[in-house]
Design a protein around this nucleic acid. Sequence first.
DNA 1: ATATACTGACCATGCGGATGGTAATTGTAT
DNA 2: ATACAATTACCATCCGCATGGTCAGTATAT
Lengths: 198, 198
Amino acid sequence: MPRPQNLEARERILEAAQCLFHEHGFKGVSMDDVASRARLKKANLFHYYPSKNELGLAVLERASVCQREGVAKRFSNGHDPIKTVQGMFADSAERMEKGGCFKGCFMGNVAQELSDENEKMRRKISDYLDFWTGELRLFLERHKAAGYFKKSMNSAQTARALVSLLEGATLMCKAAKSPEALKNAGAMAGTCLKALKA
Amino acid sequence: MPRPQNLEARERILEAAQCLFHEHGFKGVSMDDVASRARLKKANLFHYYPSKNELGLAVLERASVCQREGVAKRFSNGHDPIKTVQGMFADSAERMEKGGCFKGCFMGNVAQELSDENEKMRRKISDYLDFWTGELRLFLERHKAAGYFKKSMNSAQTARALVSLLEGATLMCKAAKSPEALKNAGAMAGTCLKALKA
DNA sequence: ATATACTGACCATGCGGATGGTAATTGTAT
DNA sequence: ATACAATTACCATCCGCATGGTCAGTATAT
C-alpha cells in the first residue's frame, strides 16, 4: 500500500525552484541547480516531478495560490479604496527597493518568458491575472455602489488598467534599477482614481 | 588597408537575430538558429560578431535606434496631445491584435529577460526607456506651457506612468492572448489626461 | 517484504565557440 | 590587362561542457 510521499522534500523543491526561476527565469535554471538548492541530487528530483515542465507547472500553481491569498486579503479590508490601491503600489515599490530592484514580479516574468511557448503555463498565469483583475474590479464595484465612485466609472476597464500599470512599472523599475517608476505609477493611479470620485 | 565589411550580411544577421530574439527570447535562440535564418553557416556568424553577447548588443542597438525614430516622430506632430497618446496605445493594440497577441514589446521582453544578468544590455534598454519617457515628458511639458494641461501636472511622473502602463498592458495582452488590456489602458490614459486638462 | 527515498553513472543532444582551411574579392605593381 | 599579394567571406569539422532525462541499484522505514 503506497504511503504518502515525502511532502517535506516536495515543498523544498518547489520553494527552491520558485526562487531560482524568479531570479534567472525558467530557461536560465537547470534541474541540477534546483536539486542543489533543495539539497537533493538531480536524479532524485525526477522521483518527485517527471519533467522540468511539470515542475514548472507545479511552481506556478504554488505561486498562484500564494499570490491569490495576498490579493484577496488586500481587497477585503474596509479602508479608503484609493489608499488601498495606492498601498498596492507602495508595497511593490518598497519590496522592489529592498531587493535592489531585481527579479520583479514572478508571474509577470513567467508570462513574458513562456506564454508564447507553453499554453498550459500561459493558462495558469492568465487565470491568475484574471483573478487579480476580477478581485480589483469587484472591489471598485463595491465602492461605486456605495457612492464613492462615479456611476460612469468602468470598473472592469479601470481594474485591468491598474494591474497593467503595476506590472509595467515593476518592469520599468527592474530595467532602470530604480523604484521611481513604481512610485510614479502609484501617484498616477491616485490621480486617476480621484478623478473618478463621485 | 582594410576594406569595408559585407554590410549586407551584417544587416541580414541583425534582422534575423532580432526577429528570433523577439519570438523566443535571447536564451531561447541559438547561434545556429540565427545563422540558418540569415542563410549562413554558424561559423561565419563569428566572423561578424565575436560572441552571442556582442550580437545581442548589436541587435539591441539596432532596435533602439529604430524605435527612437518612431518615438520622435510620434511626439513631433501638432495634433491634440490626448489623441496622440491614445494613438500610441491604439497602434500597439492594433499591432498586437494583428500578430495574434504574440511576442509583445521587444525592448520590454529583453528588459525582463536580461536586465538582472547583463549590465551592458540593461543600460542600453534603460537608456532607450529614458529617451522614450523623456520625449513624452517634453511633449506634455510643451502642451502644459501652451495652457492645455494644468500647471499642477507633473509631466515627468505622468510620462513615466504612461510608459509603464503601455508596457504592462502589452504584457497582459501577451499573457491573455487578447488585446483587451491595451484597449483598456488607452481608455484609462485618456481619462487620466482629461482630468489633468486646464 | 514491500513501497518509498535516494544515488552514481550514464546517455543523447545541443550549445557557444575555436580551428584551419578554401573561395571570392580587391588593391597594387608590373 | 595581368599577375600577385592581401584581405574578406565563407564553411566543415571538432571540442568541451551543460543539459534534460534514464536506469539500475542501494538504503530505509514500516
